[in-house]
Amino acid sequence: MKVLIIDDESSVRRALQRAFTSRGHQASVAIDAIEGESLWLVEKPEMVILDVLMPKMTGPQLLEKLKDFIKNYPVKVILISAYSGEFDTKQSLSKGANLFIEKPFENIFSVVDKAEELII
């Protein structure tokens, strides 16, 4: 699958990209929601891993902005965040995300597993 990873932490971006690539997927990265938006519109990935708290624009804010675009093609969104308390699962799902995973991940490959499950 084609994956787009949007996170402002470079080590997290690289880890996710390497994990997805090692499992045979195609993964692009964006350093923030603004770059993420452009890449999303151009590449139309099937899976987007989106960080919640980012400067300038948050993950949920981006989802809101691309609400209609997302509705009009098959795409799944996984929200990831280090701030578990302030952003609960129910909220994330109502904003157009399909899954919410807390950082630090139990295991990076479990994220890939969950993404694969969603696409099937």
Partner: peptide
């Protein structure tokens, strides 16, 4: 938590 995630995850990869 953020950079820690990166460290842990890359180690796993």
């Amino acid at each position: 938590n953020n950079p820690l995630t990166g460290i842990k995850s890359l180690t796993e990869v």
